[in-house]
């Protein structure tokens, strides 16, 4: 069942180039593994697949490894995809 609305937020601007936006809301199953959640997001933004191994993936502001870890999401939970930025 696709219920809670996990808002996800794409960490940084070069991401915007890849994904096209900073923040949006996505409906996903309440219980989902971290890898499935990533794949749901990649379905909407296929170019993110390019940098899968170069991002910090965080749920509720906490690092999550992409894998079998089961997440129980609440409406409004924030999922962040954070690539490193290197400018200075």
């Amino acid at each position: 069942m696709c219920q809670p609305l996990a808002s996800y937020w794409l960490g940084h601007t070069h991401h915007v180039k890849l994904a096209g936006l900073r923040c949006e809301t996505l409906s996903v199953p309440r219980e989902i593994t971290s890898l499935q959640l990533w794949e749901e997001i990649v379905k909407v933004h296929p170019r993110l697949a390019l940098i899968r191994d170069q991002v910090v993936f965080a749920v509720r502001q906490e690092y999550v490894l992409l894998g079998d870890q089961l997440l129980v999401l609440q409406p409004g939970d924030e999922v962040a995809i954070i690539p490193p930025i290197s400018g200075g």
């Binding site: 601007t13 070069h14 180039k17 390019l50 940098i51 170069q54 910090v56 400018g87």
Partner: peptide
Amino acid sequence: YRCLFPEPPPPDTVTNCADG
């Protein structure tokens, strides 16, 4: 830094301050 980012990003996905 490598624990978080084991592989460098593909060069054409990196934006520098001169570009961005």
